[in-house]
């Protein structure tokens, strides 16, 4: 059965997701920051975490952005194959929603139309849109406002198969160490292993969507996540790089089949304010 949907109906929905993601941290994130506060031993680190928790509460109450860097909007859509669209082109409607959300929600306009001849678009469009066709007749939309602090610390490398899991661990740890306090820890570390260059970086970003505390269902990768999390928290970087026990809230690994000659790895970092909003239509 075909389900007819209008792209116009997406505009207010995406606008609201942009605002919700920037104003309200999820219970999952608040819970993780509270647990970090309990665990942290550094007085500066504890003080920082307390401020971040107070800040999240204030932002939500006042409906103002948790962080001034309301990011470039990454919009991920899972579209059921039975859905048929009417109305304006999908990407145009999604950008209309982002424009509406960032304008009416008093969010920061942080997008340059050209990376070298830097002129601000004035309305935070375009977004980065990823669409995926899935089974069924539903549409799932996630908005991930991605700030520069953590996004700019992302890394990618092509290891050789002989580097193996030890090479992967070394690359992830090196990436987190280089990011230090600049990525606004405590961070969530999204790791993509396998695929081709484009796929590797995309699954590293998708890894950030998994709730904090949830492990990869594959036992091997679950254990690798746990090992990396423990190693990262030995670095001493701590909240905002002020020193401390909690540098990462979690490590999430996603993997994908790859070519016989390949072992690509991508690391996408997410700051302490894990801002995202999702809806299923």
């Amino acid at each position: 059965m075909t389900r007819i949907m209008s792209t116009e109906d997406l505009i207010p929905v995406i606008a609201k997701l942009c605002m919700d993601a920037c104003y309200h941290l999820s219970d999952n994130v608040i819970g993780a920051l509270k647990a970090a506060y309990e665990k942290e031993e550094s007085p500066y680190g504890r003080d920082t975490l307390k401020l971040l928790l107070d800040n999240a509460e204030l932002a939500s109450k006042e409906e103002m952005p948790v962080c001034h860097d309301t990011g470039m909007a990454v919009v991920m859509m899972e579209i059921g194959e039975q859905v048929s669209w009417v109305g304006k082109p999908l990407e145009e409607a999604v950008n209309d929603g982002v424009r509406k959300g960032y304008t009416e929600g008093y969010l920061r306009k942080s997008v340059y139309l050209d990376p070298l001849n830097r002129v601000n678009s004035g309305d935070n469009t375009p977004c980065v849109l990823h669409t995926e066709i899935v089974t069924g007749d539903k549409v799932k939309i996630t908005v991930l406002p991605k700030g520069g602090g953590s996004e700019n610390m992302g890394t990618f490398t092509n290891l050789v198969p002989a580097d193996g899991v030890e090479g992967v661990k070394e690359f992830v740890l090196k990436s987190v160490l280089a990011a230090g306090g600049k990525a606004c820890p405590p961070i969530v570390v999204g790791v993509g292993i396998g695929g081709t260059m484009d796929k590797t970086t995309l699954i590293a970003k998708k890894a950030l969507l998994r709730p904090i505390g949830n492990r990869n269902p594959n036992q091997y990768y679950k254990e690798l996540e746990e090992e990396l999390l423990e190693e990262i928290n030995k670095f001493g970087i701590g909240p905002l790089g002020m020193g401390g026990r909690v540098t990462a809230l979690d490590v999430h690994i996603e993997y994908y089949p790859c070519h016989i000659t390949s072992l690509p790895v991508a690391v996408n970092l997410q700051c302490h304010s894990v801002r995202q909003a999702t809806i299923e239509l």
Binding site: M64, C67, H68, L107
Partner: peptide, 21 residues
Amino acid sequence: VGPTPAKPGKVIGSAAPTTSA
């Protein structure tokens, strides 16, 4: 710092430091 736009009645929107490096 690069703040968000001020909502009506407010002096400034959200504001915090950016990456100094």
